[in-house]
Amino acid sequence: MKQKFDINRFKDNMFKYFGLACTLFGLAVLSIFLINILIEGLGRLNWQFFSSLPSRMPEKSGILICLLGSIWIMVLTAIIAVPLGVASGIFLEEYGKKNKIASFIEINISNLAGVPSIIYGLLALEIFVRILGLGKSLLAGSLTLSLLILPIIIVSTREAIKAVPKSIREASYALGGTKWQTIRFQVLPAASGGLLTGVILAISRAVGESAPLIVIGALLYITTIPTSPMDDFAVMPIQIFNWLSRPQKGFIENATAAIIVLLLITFIMNGLAIYLRNRWQKKIKW
């Protein structure tokens, strides 16, 4: 009896150290990447880099157009995908009946989340660029990326809503609240944390995508600043990809600097999510 207890205890400890080792491994790899990138690229970050057009000379080229393109894409994609995704998530979770059609839709949405992004690019090239005649505009690009991240937003919305305790809904109904009032004033605020995390992760993924945008014909060399959703555009990941593959050393440095900027955008987004989550959660008093 005593022996068995010891073995179990040993296993317990082993798993603890195994988990610790896995965590440290991930952190170590991440910090090596980050330090490497910071050392190589930090020196390149100056006003000239942010305010210049593409150039054949690495020291003269900059990310003005593609940075603005990426910001446009991020905002437009959020405007399109977040309401659609969150609303579909709410419908499927709260209103949808649990029948065969519902489970069919459910399986398909989960599958869509795993489709390679370039496939969305091919679909978008036909539908948005050619049939709808949007051209290779910011709007076409954002619609493409919205398709790509919709499944992620829907799935994470549903998970967040599922995590809200049933007692809260029942309390709301007991006080005479309608379904919409329950969702609006109880379920959504309570689910906001998970909901926001999902949305931010999805948008961060959209900002880092290049393959589907290359397929729909996003540009690399462009000298005009995008001022409307119908304008042509370039984005950061395509520029980074191109710089990394060029022979001249200076371009590699440019690429690492651009990676730092892209990382910063993602960090700011994540920070924003954490800030909003904390603010919302303070307001919830049960």
Partner: peptide
């Protein structure tokens, strides 16, 4: 003249 180039 607005010249644009992609790389498909």
């Amino acid at each position: 003249i607005k010249v644009t180039a992609g790389l498909s």
